[in-house]
Structure formats: C-alpha cells, structure tokens
C-alpha cells in the first residue's frame, strides 16, 4: 500500500513538473498584461490573417482527407486488392516521418530547385512557398487520422448487410452511400476533428514549405515563432492561448465522437 502511494506521488510530480507547470506559466504569461493587452496581441491584422489562413487551409485539408480517408479505409477493410499491406504501411508513413522531413519531401519534388517545381512555376502554378504547398503539406501529415478512425468501425460492420444490398440489385456505389456510410459517419467525424486540430497546430512541414510570408503564407504557429524570435514572448503566449483554447475544445469533441462511433474496443 505504501508502495502504491509512493508511485502515485511520483507520477503526479512528474506530470506536474513536465506538463502542468509549463502550461500554467504559458497561461499566466499570456494573460498577465490584462484584457486590453491580450486583445491587442490577438486582434492585430497580422495575427488575424495568420489564424484565418490556418483555419481555412485546415478546413480544406480536413474536407479532402475525410473523403479520401474513408475511401482508403473501405479499400483496406473490404476488398481483396493486391498490395494491401503496402497500402496499410503507406497510410502510417506520415505518422513515422518527422513533419519537417515531410516538408522537405515536398520541397524535393516541387521546390524552386526541383525540375517539376520549375515546370509548374513556368506554367503559373507555384506550390512551394505558396498556399497550395501549405494544403499539400497538411494533406500529407494528416492522411492517417480519418483512415485509422474509420477502419475499426468498418471492420465490425456485418458485410452481410452490404451483400444483401448487392443481392437486391444495389450497385457498389449505392451500397457504399446507403448501407455503409451512415453507420461510419461518427467515425469519419472523429477522424476529421483530429485532422483539423492537427492541421491548425502543424508547424514543422509548414515552416519548410510555406515560405512564411506575412499576409500570404504565414500560418498561426509560424507567426507565434516569429513573435518569440522577435522577443515578444507575452504576445506569443497570448496568441498561443487562442490556439490552445481551440485545441482544448476539439480534443474532447474527437473523444466523444470516437466513443459514439464505437468499433475497436468500443
């Protein structure tokens, strides 16, 4: 009994020192200037533009990956296709690859020095150091979330229902839309919320590919870095709090949706 109390105290101390203390300091520092200073730090045109850019690029990446991720999960769970293991491994790749390296991959393919990048540039489509590059990087790093959320739910659905639909004359697409999709929608939503949260917080890949041009390609986390480097840690902390508040709303939402989705160990 004494041992378990000691263990409890040790774990609590470790979490307090490593997580609670830094977070608390961040919150205090972000608010210590009072409401006026906080509002000034988070309402300037550069901040608003950076947060806006983060939100809409994240929304776009989320919409695309919700559709693509559901399709990938469907292929992985339902069909006997060649290379299923390769597809499964590829889907996990963005979780293993450092996000800065993900950015470097995009630069290697579409950067100003790369042949394909130059070609597209001449055709008038700039990807690296422009907004398409931001969306592309987000699509890369958030690819696994919807797939991994939908897969276990899809696995638990009885394929007999789909077979019945097919026997009664439904085409595969009809079966997908009418029979399969409704029960997996909460899982898709859970994955989408995770995708969105990760996209808004994404830093490494965007630091490499976005070019970080204020009012054009500067996303919120990179804006925070700029403020830190400029010595404005209080302002950076204030903007961080806004992002933190968003993350703290999205995380429980993803949890609730995942629980509703069931599947896995549900």
């Amino acid at each position: 009994m004494k041992g378990s109390l000691l263990l409890r105290a040790g774990v609590s101390a470790w979490v307090t020192a490593f997580v609670a203390l830094p977070l608390l300091v961040l919150v205090v520092r972000g608010l210590e200037g009072g409401p006026a200073a906080f509002w000034e730090a988070v309402s300037g045109p550069a901040v608003r533009d950076a947060v806006g850019l983060s939100l809409w690029t994240a929304g776009l990446a989320t919409a695309v990956n919700a559709v693509v991720g559901t399709c990938i999960a469907w292929v992985l769970v339902r069909w006997d296709v060649p290379g299923r293991r390769v597809i499964a491994a590829l889907v996990d790749l963005p979780l293993a690859i450092p996000t800065l390296v993900a950015g470097m991959l995009i630069l290697a393919l579409l950067g100003p020095q790369a042949p394909l990048g130059r070609l597209l540039d001449q055709a008038g489509l700039q990807v690296a150091f422009a907004r398409p590059g931001i969306v592309l990087a987000l699509l890369f790093v958030t690819l696994p979330f919807v797939v991994r959320a939908v897969e276990p739910v899809l696995e638990e659905l009885d394929p007999a229902e789909e077979e019945a639909a097919t026997t009664l004359g439904a085409r595969p697409v009809q079966t997908f839309l009418r029979v399969l999709l409704p029960p997996v929608l909460p899982a898709v939503a859970a994955g989408a919320v995770q995708t969105f949260a990760r996209s808004v917080a994404e830093f490494g890949s965007l630091a490499a590919v976005s070019g970080n041009i204020p009012f054009k390609t500067l996303v919120a986390p990179v804006y925070v870095l700029g403020e830190v480097e400029a010595g404005n840690t209080a302002g950076a902390a204030s903007v961080s709090l806004v992002l933190l508040a968003l993350a703290l709303t999205l995380q429980p939402l993803a949890h609730v949706l995942a629980r509703r989705a069931g599947g896995g160990r549900g």
Binding site: L21, P22, L23, V25, L26, R29, A197, V200, A201, E202, F203, G204, A220, P221, V222, V224, L225, V228, T233, A236, A237, S240, L243, L244, A247, L248, L250, Q251
Partner: peptide
C-alpha cells in the same frame, strides 16, 4: 498531443 510544438517550446522558454 494537443499543443503545437512551437507552443511547447514557448512554454518551456517561459519556465
């Protein structure tokens, strides 16, 4: 998992 890495760095810098 919820924090952007930059914010993590900032929080530690403030400590």
């Amino acid at each position: 998992l919820a924090l952007s890495p930059v914010m993590t760095g900032l929080a530690f810098l403030l400590v």
